[in-house]
Simulated assay, not measured.
Amino acid sequence: MKIAVIVALAVSTLATPAQASEVFGGLYVHGVDTPLTLGGSPEGGIDFQLGLRGDQIIPGTGLEPHLFAAVNSKGDTSYLSAGLSWKFGDKLYVRPGLGLAVHNGSKADFDKPGNGRIEFGSRLLFAPELGIGVRVSPRVTVEASWVHLSHATIFSGQNPGIDNIGARLNLRF
């Protein structure tokens, strides 16, 4: 557990923007079955997501650091993610991103099937995401997004992963 806290602090300081330029929040369906999850998820509920996005790292590139937390309504896996996203477009846009996440779910309990939790195989996971959004005012955008958590079989042979799909509201300062 101490290692997870240290990793979370390190990841958050690396990607924490010097000055947040945007705050966002959203609701996500937790444990959506997609081809990337390798079967149905035993977890469910709604994730409440809250985060910050920083100014562009290199002006004009659309590359922005982000930090967000997702808390699950049923007490299933919650996580903290930090990384980078790239925004392509303005009025209508696409925002792919990649981060690292630390979670409070099961790490590796493969010998206890049917325990109702996803067995991720690692406390630290990759967190790719994809958002498609629209600007509704100069400071407000709304986007549909997908967030995936897994370790890509790097830390163990088992890699069930989880997909969360939802919508978020972004408010630029």
Rank of each mutant, 00 (worst) to 15 (best):
G114Q: 04
R123I: 13
E119V: 05
R139C: 13
A82W: 02
P138F: 14
V147A: 14
V94F: 15
E129Q: 13
G75P: 10
L63F: 01
G105E: 12
F88P: 04
G114P: 09
S150C: 09
A70M: 11
D109N: 14
A108T: 08
H151F: 02
D90C: 13
E64F: 14
P96N: 03
A82Q: 09
W86K: 10
G99V: 01
I118R: 12
I58V: 13
N104M: 05
E143D: 14
V136G: 02
A152E: 00
D76Y: 15
G89M: 07
E119K: 09
W146Y: 11
L67T: 01
T61C: 01
T153V: 06
Y93D: 07
S137E: 09
L130T: 01
F120E: 06
L125T: 00
K87C: 00
L92W: 05
G133D: 03
R123D: 13
G97N: 00
L92K: 03
V102P: 02
G131S: 08
T61Y: 03
E143V: 09
P65F: 01
E143K: 07
S145Q: 12
A152H: 04
G121F: 00
S85C: 10
A127L: 00
D55V: 02
L67K: 01
F155C: 15
V102K: 07
A82P: 05
P113Q: 08
G133K: 05
G89D: 04
G105A: 14
G116Y: 13
D90Y: 13
I118F: 12
W146S: 08
S78Q: 03
P59R: 05
L84T: 00
G133S: 08
A82K: 06
Y79T: 06
T61W: 02
L124H: 08
G75L: 11
D111W: 14
R117P: 03
R117G: 10
R117I: 08
S122G: 13
E143I: 10
E64T: 14
L100T: 05
N72L: 07
H151K: 02
I57T: 03
W146K: 07
L63Q: 01
P128C: 04
V147D: 10
N115C: 10
P113D: 09
